[in-house]
Design a protein around this nucleic acid. Structure first.
Length: 421
RNA sequence: GGAGGGAUGGCAGAGCGGUUUAAUGCACCGGUCUUGAAAACCGGAGUGUCCUUAUGGGCACCGUGAGUUCGAAUCUCACUCCCUCCGCCA
């Protein structure tokens, strides 16, 4: 959420930033609500001050045994106007708050301009795609043949997009999760947590999934809970409505299953593991002092990259343009893995700096150098998402006979297994 | 699901209709003392918001929301969460 004072005092900057993102926001309406609220507040608070003063007098008069009927009538007469103004202020406040909850974050100055993914900037590429002396097979052929997953049975259990891993495929999922958690906790300084997979509306609002993106989530109506689309939600809400006492930066990592309805994506990437409704992911979240968040984004990105480097995968880094930023983000790097059979780059991680956008929504603060409570900056990144990682491992590791060579870093996590055949 | 208890500032813990600008203790910050530290003593300090800004002042906040009253942390109602016990259960 943006600070209404920022909008009020730097209206032109805010307009420019929102235009850059290509979103239509009625700033005039927002500013009008702000004016209504403040003028009502000025009047009602003055009346309340009068009331408090007179009530105190009444108390003193009663104690002295004097008659207070006239004073009481005077105050009673003010009650209606106070109630009316309270209502006006509350309504303006609710409308204003609602409007602010629907406004996206402002892009960081470093973000390249642009309307859509085509304008994202390629920052760098790590490694060069392997050349094949045979036609590489897509992961769904490799995986089904080797018995790593059974998408048909998964679809029968739940529906299309609910992958079912089997045998060594299930072991691979578990091994990858453990490999990544071990790496982040022992090498990168993150503390592991194992969070709930369902969260309430307040948490979803805190990180920015609600109210705008409700359609993208699974909702359990009977209990008004949402299946998390990412561990970002519970992990960031770890400190919701708190003043953080732990020394900053706080770095948390968590594994979770993630659930996404993929509304609006019908018909896209329907085959295989590239776009699914449920998947596993290891997430990285940081709570940092505002001055350090730019640098923390770079190290967050490096922590996610380390996973891919240790697995010997080819990837590239994109810096998202303003028009491609997610709702809550001010600055995002995507990491994409090369998938040879797809002949495509697949997003496996998105590392974002949210500035104080989520912290303001979720009420996450710290004590700054002056001892004042101030909003932290939050960051998160996938470290990394499993299905597309598996796609890349299978398609890149394949041999002509359909067997798959596994990277050395994984061997200890698969009971010494080095080849899937 | 049933019964009972509870929710107050970072923590502990008073207050149950008007000197509460929420006592007191611990923790915290500054100072005195000390070679230094500890102890002792003195002082400071909640959050949000609005007006004015050098300063200062107002309003709101004692789980949440309504209500009674001239006046609510305190009285009434509803709700939420936590704890204990019982039932069910991985």
């Amino acid at each position: 959420m943006l600070d209404i004072r920022t909008i009020r005092e730097r209206e032109a900057d805010v307009r420019r930033a929102l235009d850059l993102r290509g979103v239509g926001v009625d700033l005039d309406a927002v500013l009008a609500l702000d004016r209504d609220r403040r003028s009502g507040l000025a009047e009602v608070e003055q009346l309340k001050n009068q009331r408090n003063v007179i009530s105190k007098e009444i108390g003193a008069l009663k104690k002295a045994g004097q008659d207070t009927a006239a004073r009481q009538a005077e105050v009673r007469a003010m009650g209606d106007r106070i109630a009316e103004l309270d209502r006006i202020v509350r309504e303006a406040e609710e409308k204003l708050n609602n409007a602010l909850l629907f406004m996206p974050n402002l892009p960081h100055p470093a973000v390249p301009p642009g309307h859509d993914a085509a304008q994202n900037r390629v920052v760098r590429q790590h490694g060069t795609p392997r050349s094949f002396d045979f036609e590489p097979k897509p992961h769904w052929e490799l995986g089904e043949k080797l018995g790593l997953f059974d998408l048909e049975r998964g679809a029968r259990m739940s529906g299309a997009g609910f992958p079912l891993f089997t045998g060594r495929g299930a072991r691979l999922e578990r091994g990858l999760i453990q490999f990544m958690l071990d790496l982040h906790t022992t090498q990168h300084g993150y503390r592991e947590i194992a969070p709930p997979f369902l969260c309430n509306a307040a948490s979803m609002t805190g990180t920015g999934q609600l109210p705008k993106l409700a359609e993208d989530m699974y909702h359990v109506a009977s209990d008004d809970l949402y299946l998390i689309p990412t561990a970002e939600v519970p992990v960031t809400n770890f400190y919701r409505e708190e003043i953080i006492r732990d020394p900053l930066p706080v770095k948390l990592t968590a594994y979770s299953a993630c659930f996404r309805r993929e509304a609006g994506a019908a018909g896209r990437d329907t085959r295989g593991l590239i776009r699914v409704h449920q998947f596993d992911k290891v997430e990285l979240v940081k709570f940092v002092e505002p001055e350090t968040s730019d640098a923390e984004l770079e190290t967050l990105l490096a922590d996610a990259e380390d996973v891919l480097q240790r697995l010997g995968l080819v990837y590239r880094i994109l810096e998202l343009c303003a028009g491609d930023l997610s709702f809550a983000s001010s600055h995002t790097y995507d990491i994409e893995l090369w998938a040879p059979a797809q002949k495509a780059w697949l997003e496996v991680s998105s590392c974002s700096n949210f500035g104080d956008f989520q912290a303001r929504r979720a009420g996450i603060r710290y004590r700054n150098k002056d001892g004042k409570a101030a909003f932290v900056h939050t960051l998160n990144g996938s470290g990394v998402a499993l299905p597309r990682l598996v796609v890349a491992l299978l398609e890149n590791g394949q041999r002509a006979d359909g067997s798959i060579v596994l990277p050395e870093a994984l061997h200890p996590y698969l009971g010494g297994l080095t080849v899937l055949d």
